[in-house]
């Protein structure tokens, strides 16, 4: 099933063909201002049941505000948020059935691990026995078997992440929200947590909205990435669609490294570094190699073409080698050149 690659429109078509499930979370014309600052300008997006969505963008792009509006931690100015057909904007945060993991994790410092996870269940009057069994099951799920009696402060960063995830999922939320939960972890641990979150999400099939500024993280996790900029959605689509067919110049340069080539009287094109091959002869653009660096398997080059510095990369040893300063001809196949809006 890879027809999701085709993008938003095709995705809706695919779901229509499947015919079974409605969009679980539907946001229409959502606006939010803080004073004179417009944090969200007319956001509309539909998230499918069980889908994993990443809101991706730089700081101040509105991604966290959007998440907090879904959670009910902020009030919107106008627009609609529907979850499972229910108008969420009329329901206060504590009555929405959501699970949220915060950037700071926000574990309750006065409760131990088990009590943190059981908090919501206790509040709802779940019998103690039942809650205990559920806590044990959740601890198993996040790989913290037997640590229920520990103080939250006695755990490592990664373990605390897991507690926060287990706590958010304890009430079997309709929607799972995560606000840059892994930004404080080191790279290796972050990779590991990403894999685990993905596994848990797949097993539970819970609709998930994950906020991140890290495009690698978004690529690794998301069924669909929503790229945001200045309070608006630039593009929403599967990771490989965003990578190979960016809808805007912003997306083209925000996701990965890209070369934008302006053309007289025509739309500019975007060519990825790995799509470019170099030669000493032939026709096409010529340039001079400024720098080359070998990063393990990858060889990266910067090439000066006219007034512009272009990036080229290849698996080391797959192409001819050049000296620094050498003049080279750049070429790519037409299907790798993506025309951007002017």
């Amino acid at each position: 099933m890879h027809n999701r690659m085709i993008g938003g429109g095709a995705l809706r078509l695919a779901t229509a063909i499947k015919g079974a499930k409605m969009a679980e979370l539907t946001i229409t014309n959502l606006r939010k201002s803080f004073g004179t600052f417009e944090a969200l300008k007319d956001i509309s997006i539909a998230v499918e049941d069980g889908e994993f969505i990443c809101l991706l963008g730089g700081s101040g792009c509105g991604k966290t505000t959007l998440l907090r509006l879904i959670a009910g931690l902020e009030t919107h100015n106008s627009g609609d948020i529907l979850l499972g057909g229910q108008d969420l904007t009329q329901i206060p945060c504590h009555k929405r059935n959501i699970g949220m993991v915060f950037q700071s994790l926000a574990l309750f410092p006065h409760l131990n691990v088990g009590d943190n996870i059981a908090y919501g269940m206790r509040l709802r009057g779940t019998p103690a026995k039942e809650a205990d069994t559920e806590v044990a099951r959740l601890l198993d799920m996040v790989g913290l078997t037997g640590l229920g009696k520990r103080a939250a402060s006695a755990l490592s960063g990664g373990q605390r992440q897991r507690v926060a995830i287990a706590r958010a999922l304890a009430l079997q939320p309709q929607i799972f929200l995560m606000d840059e939960p892994f930004s404080a972890l080191d790279a290796a641990l972050r990779d590991q947590m990403q894999e685990e979150v993905k596994r848990i999400q797949r097993n539970l099939g819970v609709t998930t909205v994950f906020v991140t500024h890290d495009q690698r993280e978004a690529m690794a996790l998301a069924d669909r990435i929503v790229v945001m900029n200045g309070g608006m959605i630039e593009q929403a689509g599967a990771p490989d669609v965003l990578y190979s067919r960016p809808a805007t110049r912003f997306v083209a340069t925000f996701i990965g490294i890209n070369n934008i080539l302006e053309r007289d009287g025509q739309r500019p094109i975007a060519v990825r570094p790995e799509a470019i091959t170099l030669d000493t002869k032939g026709d096409g653009l010529t340039g001079q190699i400024l720098r080359q660096r070998r990063l393990g398997a990858l060889l990266e080059r910067e090439i000066k073409v006219g007034g512009q510095t272009l990036h080229q990369s290849e698996i080391a040893g797959n192409g001819p080698s050049f000296e620094d300063g050498a003049t080279v001809t750049l070429s790519w196949s037409d299907d790798k050149a993506w025309a951007l809006p002017a």
Binding site: C93, H94, M100, L105, L123
Partner: peptide, 10 residues
């Protein structure tokens, strides 16, 4: 966020 987390948990 700790207070907000408590609200999201009901």
């Amino acid at each position: 966020n700790i207070e907000e987390a408590a609200v999201t948990l009901g």
